[in-house]
C-alpha cells in the first residue's frame, strides 16, 4: 500500500515546484504521505524519493530525524502531553500518569482499539496555559485530570471531529501557490539580481549598492 495516490501525487508535484531544489520538498511530501495514511510507510518514502530524485535511504534518514513522522502505524488520535518545565511545574507529569492509567498504555503506546497513541512530549509552546495537551497537534490548554477524561470521552464520542482531524492531517488550510501564481521560484543558479534592486542601483548612479 501507500504510495501517494494520484491526487496527492499531483499535489506533490505542485509542492516540489515551490522550492528552488526538489529535495526541499522532502519534509512537506512526508507530511502529505502521512496525511494520506496516518503514518509514513516504506512505500510512501520510496515514492517520495522517486518524486524528488533521491534514494529511499535519504528520505528515511531525514524523516526518522523528526518526531512527527511516525514510521509505524499510530492511533487515530495522538495524545501529546507536555511534561516540559512549565507544564511539569503545574502537573504535566501527573497528567501523563493519569493519561497512562486512563488509556491503559504507557507513553509511546497505542491502545489496542487503534484509537489513541499517547506521547510524553517536549514543550509545545503553550507554556502559560500549563499543563498543555495536543491531540493531533490541536491544542488543549490547562488540562486537569477531569478535563482529560472529558477530552477522551469527547473524542470517542466523535464530538470533536470538526476540530480534530485524524492523525496525519496537519493544517486544513493549505497555501494555494499554483504554478501560475509563482513569481520568482527557479533553481538558485538561474536567479539574477532582482529588478527592483537593479533599478535602485541604476538610479543611484555609479554607487555599487549592496
Amino acid at each position: 500500500m501507500a504510495r501517494l495516490n494520484e491526487a496527492n501525487e499531483q499535489l506533490a508535484r505542485a509542492i516540489i515546484a515551490r522550492y528552488p531544489e526538489p529535495r526541499s520538498a522532502l519534509i512537506p511530501l512526508c507530511h502529505l504521505a502521512q496525511e494520506q495514511d496516518g503514518w509514513l510507510d516504506e512505500d510512501a518514502m520510496a515514492h517520495v524519493a522517486e518524486l524528488i530524485g533521491c534514494t529511499p535511504a535519504q528520505v528515511l534518514g531525514t524523516a526518522s530525524f523528526y518526531e512527527m513522522f511516525k514510521l509505524h502505524p499510530v492511533g487515530k488520535y495522538c495524545i501529546n502531553v507536555c511534561t516540559n518545565i512549565s507544564c511539569q511545574l503545574l502537573g504535566g507529569e501527573e497528567l501523563l500518569e493519569h493519561a497512562e492509567s486512563r488509556l491503559g498504555v504507557r507513553s509511546g503506546g497505542t491502545t489496542p482499539d487503534g484509537m489513541f497513541t499517547l506521547e510524553d512530549v517536549e514543550c509545545v509552546a503553550a507554556c502559560t496555559e500549563a499543563p498543555a495537551v495536543q491531540v493531533n497537534y490541536r491544542y488543549f490548554h490547562r488540562v486537569g485530570i477531569e478535563d482529560f477524561d472529558a477530552l477522551i470521552d469527547a473524542l470517542l464520542a466523535g464530538e470533536l471531529d470538526d476540530v480534530v482531524p485524524p492523525h496525519g492531517t496537519l493544517a486544513k488550510v493549505r497555501q494555494d501557490l499554483a504554478a501560475d501564481r509563482i513569481a520568482n521560484i527557479t533553481a538558485p543558479e538561474d536567479q539574477e539580481m532582482p529588478v527592483w534592486i537593479a533599478r535602485a542601483e541604476a538610479s543611484a548612479g555609479e554607487g555599487a549598492a549592496t
Binding site: 500518569e97 492509567s101 504507557r106 509511546g108 503506546g109 491502545t111
Partner: peptide
C-alpha cells in the same frame, strides 16, 4: 502507584 496496563504496541512509538 499507578501501574498502567501495557498494550501490545506500547513502546513502539515515540522516544
Amino acid at each position: 502507584t499507578p501501574a498502567p496496563a501495557t498494550a501490545a504496541t506500547a513502546g513502539e512509538v515515540g522516544h
